[in-house]
């Protein structure tokens, strides 16, 4: 076992590398029109750094959340969707799986899964009939790759408050708040959600100038 100082050094190095390494992100967005749908081709990077790849290959699930927001040229009329992909690996059958909404696809190797996750084709974003015909808009995107379960894991924030009771007196209760943590959270407004990559913006795009493509896709029923 390494000496404590050596362990501390490697631990800090590991965390520093983790912090400095670029997180998951979208690198290319190509919106298009398809019938009454606004769709987009997306290309991602850094979805599978080594720790995530190892976690997946050890049999534990990975969740990829993609937050997609659109707004007009003035930054108003925002709309958004969250695209969630759940990835798994059956260590006994050697099959990788990808679940996205109603879609469930299996792959026999990791590279095929990675290819399917890195490139999304004709993803529905909005109904064209809901948008002004000559609208100019931006697309903002942010990606999170979370091991073991996604949104619920991200919600496990640092401990800030709790109610405690004295084991010797079941009638006593105390509500305790971490004042330092509250102040810290106030000044760091984005919080420390370590699985999210940086937000990237694309555009502006003009709706009437987009390419028309023919794709059979399920329509968007509701805007989340």
């Amino acid at each position: 076992m390494a000496a404590p100082r050596l362990r501390l050094f490697f631990g800090l190095l590991l965390l520093a590398v983790g912090l400095l390494a670029e997180g998951p992100c979208v690198v290319r967005v190509e919106p298009a029109r398809s019938g009454d749908q606004l769709v987009a081709d997306l290309e991602f990077e850094n979805l599978f750094p080594r720790p995530i790849e190892n976690t997946l290959k050890s049999g534990l699930p990975i969740v990829i959340d993609c937050l997609i927001e659109m707004d007009d040229h003035a930054g108003e009329d925002p709309r958004g969707i969250v695209l969630r992909s759940e990835l798994g690996y059956d260590v006994w059958d050697g099959i990788f799986s990808l679940r996205r909404g109603e879609m469930h696809v299996s792959f026999e190797d990791f590279l095929a899964l990675q290819q399917a996750c890195d490139h999304l084709t004709a993803l529905p974003l909005a109904k064209l009939s809901d948008l002004p015909p000559a609208a100019t808009f931006h697309i903002h995107m942010r990606v999170a790759v979370s091991p073991f379960g996604g949104e619920d894991a991200d919600r496990v924030a640092r401990w800030l408050s709790e109610t405690v009771s004295d084991s010797r007196d079941p009638n006593s209760r105390e509500f305790r708040v971490d004042l330092g943590g509250l102040i810290d959270g106030f000044f760091r407004s984005t919080g420390r959600n370590q699985h999210w990559g940086e937000s990237r913006s694309f555009g502006p795009y003009r709706l009437d100038k987009l390419q028309e493509i023919a794709v059979i896709i399920p329509s968007i029923e509701d805007e989340p």
Binding site: N54, T55, S58, V91, V156, W159
Partner: peptide, 16 residues
């Protein structure tokens, strides 16, 4: 995380 002993925690895994 709720123990209050740590600022940060990252759990990953690899096959045995």
């Amino acid at each position: 995380l709720r123990s209050g002993y740590f600022y940060e925690l990252e759990i990953s895994s690899r096959p045995g």
